[in-house]
Simulated assay, not measured.
Amino acid sequence: MKLINKLNIFLADQQIFYVKLHNLHWYLVGGSFFTLHAKFEELYNQTAGVVDDVAERILALGGKPVGSTKKALELTGVTELDDLKISGQEAIKVLLTDVKAFNEASKEIRSLAAEEGDGVTEDQFNNYVGAYEKLIWMLEAYLEK
């Protein structure tokens, strides 16, 4: 099923993104540390919820969710970070790239779910699109000079 395959790629992306957010949280340096450190924690907690919700949706559809890091790394389009210090500006740029990709993937999954008559998955990913669009706006506002 094409939808389950797309959901598993999205799930793999979220799993690796969860780790990446921890990297940003731990290696962040600079004047925006306190603000962004807290924001990255908020985002990785939200991402944990997305991981669980998407995996459970895959199960509800009769599929098998990606449950190993090895398989997630084979499927993901998310680029991992090295364990190096990163400034707030660079961290937000990295984050923005991933969030834009997740937004596009969410739109694609939403459309595919609609084509397959799966209103539940369509609604779930419509909510993700709204959340990602808001986050994109906020991240872009942060980067403005």
Rank of each mutant, 00 (worst) to 15 (best):
K20I: 08
K20Y: 09
L21V: 13
L21T: 03
L21A: 10
H22I: 13
H22L: 15
N23H: 08
N23Q: 02
L24P: 06
L24C: 07
L24T: 07
L24W: 12
H25I: 10
H25G: 11
W26S: 12
W26I: 03
W26K: 15
W26D: 14
Y27V: 04
Y27G: 09
L28K: 07
L28F: 03
V29M: 15
V29D: 14
G30C: 12
G31Q: 10
G31S: 07
G31C: 05
S32K: 13
F33W: 05
F33D: 05
F33T: 01
F34S: 10
F34E: 04
T35C: 07
L36N: 01
L36F: 03
L36M: 13
L36H: 02
H37Y: 01
H37K: 01
H37W: 01
A38F: 15
A38M: 11
K39L: 12
F40Q: 01
F40M: 04
E41S: 08
E41V: 03
L43T: 04
Y44G: 01
Y44M: 11
Y44I: 00
Y44C: 02
N45Y: 11
Q46H: 11
Q46D: 15
Q46N: 13
Q46T: 12
T47H: 04
A48P: 09
G49I: 10
G49V: 10
V50R: 12
V50S: 15
V51C: 06
D52M: 09
D52T: 10
D52H: 03
D53K: 11
D53G: 12
V54L: 02
V54R: 02
V54C: 01
A55T: 00
A55D: 04
E56D: 09
E56F: 05
E56N: 15
E56H: 06
I58Y: 01
I58N: 01
I58C: 00
I58P: 00
L59H: 02
L59T: 11
A60G: 06
L61I: 00
L61K: 04
L61V: 00
G62N: 04
G63Q: 02
G63R: 00
G63E: 04
G63V: 02
K64Y: 12
K64N: 14
K64Q: 14
K64T: 13
K64D: 07
K64E: 13
V66G: 14
G67E: 12
G67V: 11
G67F: 12
S68K: 03
S68V: 02
S68N: 08
S68C: 05
T69E: 03
T69Q: 01
T69H: 03
T69I: 06
K70P: 09
K70R: 12
K70H: 14
K70E: 11
K70N: 08
K70A: 09
K71E: 13
K71N: 04
K71L: 07
